[in-house]
């Protein structure tokens, strides 16, 4: 079954860490990526800061174009920072892999995927 691991946390905390601590925090990600690599196809994405986001909000009239707003969808303290997509046989397995990237300031949401498509390469 396909699962998404959604990473939430405060923006900028990671960037504030000294480089060696950043590297330490990344170790879990490298380990997870290496483990997923062995199992087959997976995808992962780190999102840019929400200041670079725009949000399309629907208008009440379905014939009208949505309204373009600057900023993220929701003004929340914890922000959607990144995502992994991979196959796991069971929820337990998904949880145990997700634990590899747990750190004090991110919350990790595991959610099954209903539908997926496309092929993702590394950004240029």
């Amino acid at each position: 079954m396909d699962y998404a691991i959604l990473i939430y946390g405060t923006e900028g905390t990671f960037e504030r860490l000294p480089p060696e601590k950043q590297e330490e925090a990344m170790e879990g990600h490298y380990a997870l990526q290496a483990a997923l690599e062995k199992r087959g196809a997976y995808g992962t994405v780190k999102l840019m800061p929400t200041t670079s986001a725009v949000t399309l909000r629907p208008t009440s009239d379905i014939h009208e174009k949505p309204t373009l707003m600057d900023g993220p969808f929701a003004e929340t303290k914890e922000r959607f920072l990144g995502i992994y997509i991979a196959q796991f046989d069971t929820l337990d397995e998904a949880i145990s892999f997700t634990e590899m990237i747990s750190s004090p300031y991110v919350s990790l949401e595991i959610r099954p995927i209903a539908w997926a498509g496309g092929v993702l390469g590394a950004p240029e």
């Binding site: 905390t13 504030r16 860490l17 000294p18 145990s96 892999f97 634990e99 747990s102 750190s103 300031y105």
Partner: peptide
């Protein structure tokens, strides 16, 4: 997974806290 992450060490946790304080 039996894999204990490095962040659980006290020093590292402190670094995270410092980063968080600086942010806030």
């Amino acid at each position: 997974m039996g894999r204990r992450r490095a962040w659980s060490a006290g020093v590292t946790r402190h670094a995270w806290l410092e980063a968080r304080f600086a942010d806030i």
